[in-house]
Amino acid sequence: MYDVIVVGGGPAGVSAAIYLKRLKLSVGIVMKGMGSLGKTGHIENYYGVPGPVSGADLFQKGLDQARALGIPIYQGEVLGIDNFDGFAVKTTEGTCETTCIAKAVLLATGVNKINLRVKGFDGLVGHGISYCVICDGFFYRDKKIGLVGSGDFMKDELENLANISKDITIFTNGEKLTVDTGTYPVDSGKLTEIGGIDHLEYVATENGKYPLDALFVAVGTPSATDFAVRMGAFTDHNNIVVDENYMTNIPGLFAAGDCIGGLLQIAKAVDDGAKAGLAINKYLKSLK
């Protein structure tokens, strides 16, 4: 059991982990990919780093700094977080012994909401298109269901959907399927259109048209906001809502960095991380 699991290895997550570790707390980082920082070519506006440095470089240096302090870094995709008397962070197989247990969790995954750019998509979100099986699956018992995705996140949602309907079609939207989906039909063509008058009626791909009652989206990796919504944390325009101590409305669940909105800059993420680290320390002390 950790005191804190940090989800995300960017400037906010690593800064928080460093402060927590130096406060002698047990902390682990679970992360996958470099997020928006990894895609930044030249950084010249960060204190103490005059020459242009690439985002990927800075990211790597941050991880090295955390490792040097003895903070374990688990490379893995977080699939879900349960909170019952502490938190269980469920990750893809083989990382963090599959589930990390912690007294507090800091979400610092940045923003990576992937919206499908398909004709008709935006207008039907909430009207047949959903981002969350455990939230909305109930309404589509034994109905015709489509699921968009190609990796672990999709497979996890598929397992939830299997309890709801037998009629499930998987759409990879042109991506290569990286998980075993058993006997469910898979269409790996690109989505071309999603249609319906005021509720989803069909999905079309390069290969054909499918009448559907619901389309669930589980593309890429779940974002911090995806976790927050499932756990019952307040969100506002896709940002997680936190109080002045970086805590959400769920005791012990904290968030920092881009996923809480505001200035999308390294300086702000580092500031968030440091303050969140100190606030988490205070919170853990209050539990004793």
Binding site: I134, C135, F138, R230, M231, G232, A233, F234, N249, I250
Partner: peptide, 10 residues
């Protein structure tokens, strides 16, 4: 609402 829906309980 429903009892199984975490956001509903919040």
């Amino acid at each position: 609402w429903a009892a199984w829906c975490r956001p509903c309980m919040m």
